[in-house]
């Protein structure tokens, strides 16, 4: 397979995953802004949305103040913002177009019709009451895309490279969301063990579609910062956790190792990361600092992404 093809598959899946996460972040922002008592804090909420999306800097360069309408427009339609849903879906589709020979018809048509439908949406029609429906649609499209991949693609290089992109992105997103939201919600380190405002903690979990799963998993525990962090970092049962994502990355890399009959540095790198997570304990993580822990994870994950590119000759 061409290195270019591998790169395009990788980025196509990364961007489709990113679109879904962006939609979730916006969903949470929108939800909070509608809550009673949120009037005071809603600017903070949109700011936290921008921070989680790593768009705060570019937003503040374009707009002086934070307003819901501007943030929504910036994160959904703005073509000058490479992280807007529109830009993300365009990049995903361009990568898909470049390698459509490597895609099944179902995968291609899923990604292509997503773009065609998005182009038909007029920003002026997306009023506040229509926003949830639109964001739901974005999530659905991303899931349909992933479903097409899982259900129709041969388990060959094409599949493994797309999975690598998908889960490197997911790990990055979960780590970033946890990092940003946690610190906004938790000003004092002494609050770590306490029961906090249900609504606020619910939103971290909602950002990764895990609020129901959390209740099932921890039953009667309520929202505890400690457990929320554990759920999103160390629990392999949770499909957006760092451990789950890293395990999936290892599986995809093992698939390539098996196909090529060649093992490289990236294989060891990913497996070490997985072992660190498997043997990780929340006490230790909080002791040495959650923020540092997540920052280190994000850096290592980025490094792994770059190293995969170098190893497999991405252009």
């Amino acid at each position: 397979m061409l290195g270019r093809t591998a790169a395009s598959l990788f980025w196509m899946s990364r961007y489709m995953e990113r679109a879904e996460n962006m939609a979730r972040l916006l969903e949470v922002g929108h939800r909070i802004s509608l809550m009673p008592g949120a009037i005071e804090g809603h600017r903070d909420e949109w700011r936290s949305t921008l921070l989680s999306a790593a768009c705060e800097h570019s937003y503040s360069q374009k707009y002086g103040t934070i307003t819901a309408q501007q943030v929504v427009d910036f994160l959904i339609f703005d073509e000058s913002n490479p992280s807007s849903i529109r830009s993300i879906l365009r990049t995903a589709r361009n990568n898909g177009r470049a390698v459509r020979t490597a895609l099944t018809r179902d995968v291609w048509e899923s990604i292509n019709s997503t773009w065609n439908e998005l182009v038909a949406v007029k920003p002026s029609e997306l009023t506040s009451d229509r926003l949830p429906v639109f964001l739901d649609w974005v999530k659905q499209r991303s899931m349909s895309f992933r479903g097409a991949i899982l259900g129709t693609m041969l388990r060959n290089e094409n599949y493994y490279f797309s999975q690598l992109g998908n889960f490197i992105e997911r790990a990055d997103n979960t780590a970033r969301i946890l990092d940003v939201k946690y610190f906004i919600l938790l000003p004092k380190p002494s609050d770590v063990g306490s029961d906090l405002d249900m609504h606020q903690w619910g939103q971290i979990l909602r950002s990764v579609s895990a609020h129901r799963a959390y209740r099932w998993f921890y039953r009667n525990s309520g929202y505890k910062p400690w457990l929320v962090a554990e759920f999103l970092i160390l629990r392999e049962e949770m499909p957006r956790s760092l451990l789950f994502s890293t395990s999936w990355i290892c599986t995809a890399l093992a698939g390539l190792e098996n196909l090529h009959g060649a093992r490289y540095g990236v294989h060891g790198q990913a497996e070490e990361a997985r072992e660190r997570l498997r043997s990780g304990r929340m006490e230790d993580i909080f002791q040495s600092g959650l923020h540092e822990y997540l920052q280190n994870f994000i850096m290592a994950n980025n490094q792994l992404s770059r190293d995969i590119g170098t190893t497999y000759n991405f252009p």
Partner: peptide
């Protein structure tokens, strides 16, 4: 000779 860059 002419070559293409592949993943291998």
């Amino acid at each position: 000779a002419l070559y293409m860059r592949t993943t291998q």
